[in-house]
Design a binder for these strands. Structure first.
Lengths: 146, 146
DNA sequence: ATTCATTGTGAGCTTAGGTAACAGTGAGCT
DNA sequence: AGCTCACTGTTACCTAAGCTCACAATGAAT
């Protein structure tokens, strides 16, 4: 208590902040009919030039492959992506964005923007910039003990 | 894609960072036999001078009261806290830290410190300071639409 | 006394993730 | 050819953490 423990408090703040972010995100995503994790997956899919494999997504999301399956299930049921077997290697499945998916993505970004705005409201543009570069530096590394 | 969307990326980084933090935390807490949320609750209990009520904890944790019940259940089963009925108002239950609880808290802080160290390793002391003050400012407000 | 607000909890659900086992496929090797 | 081994995704189950809804007990106020 009397100890400074700055790093501990830092972690506390970080986690609290993310809790709020999660909540705001969920709130804004609700009317779109998509969960935050699905949103993240969808955005990730859109980042690729060519349709990614499940394994690619799992790695990029820092998640076990099994977790991707469920998310893709939901998104496919919602019609925003579809699974396409790769002709050159019948083990892999490519995840392709549908037109509906692209439509949803637009809504998504808007919702996300609003959520972030809610949470980051107290920060000025410069402060966000600053925070951004700190996070960039922080996430640049390979991640702890991947 | 071509849009900057700095805030969006900022959120992305934040969430990724917290994901790592969660994982590291869980990893270090595992041998102590306590989950991250329980850890948070325990630390929160320790912050009070007088034993807090369930409702106090819920509010401070920014969580619905029902969520606290489960956590206290687990901690009580582990012997680190105990429920004490408040004599002056028989609706309220005070959460008291036991000696075992204090013992666990020490282990906890150590584990937490290690987890944070893992994740924040790339940052210098000054950078952490900077990050800390940004987060302080960010969390100072009443929170978005409480 | 009756109504209303507070306080904690039982029951049940959802999201997000994880493990373990497994089937299908490709690749390399004698 | 066969035989083994690594890779890819999925089935089946488990956990953590949180939520809503309903409710019982208690206190406060009219």
């Amino acid at each position: 208590m009397t100890a400074p423990d700055t790093s501990g408090q830092l972690a506390e703040q970080l986690l609290r902040l993310t809790r709020r972010l999660h909540r705001a995100q969920k709130h804004y995503l609700d009317p779109v009919g998509i969960t935050p994790a699905q949103s993240r997956l969808l955005r990730t899919v859109a980042h690729y030039d060519h349709p990614p494999r499940m394994a690619d997504l799992a790695q990029r999301l820092e998640v076990v492959p099994r977790a991707v399956t469920t998310l893709v299930d939901a998104l496919e049921a919602g019609g925003s992506v579809c699974r396409v077997p790769d002709p050159s290697n019948r083990r892999v499945i490519r995840i392709e964005l549908t037109d509906e998916g692209r439509r949803i993505l637009r809504k998504l970004r808007e919702a996300r923007r609003a959520a972030v705005e809610d949470v980051l409201a107290p920060l000025s543009a410069e402060q966000r910039e600053q925070l951004g570069s700190l996070l960039d530096e922080l996430m640049a590394g390979p991640g702890p003990a991947c």
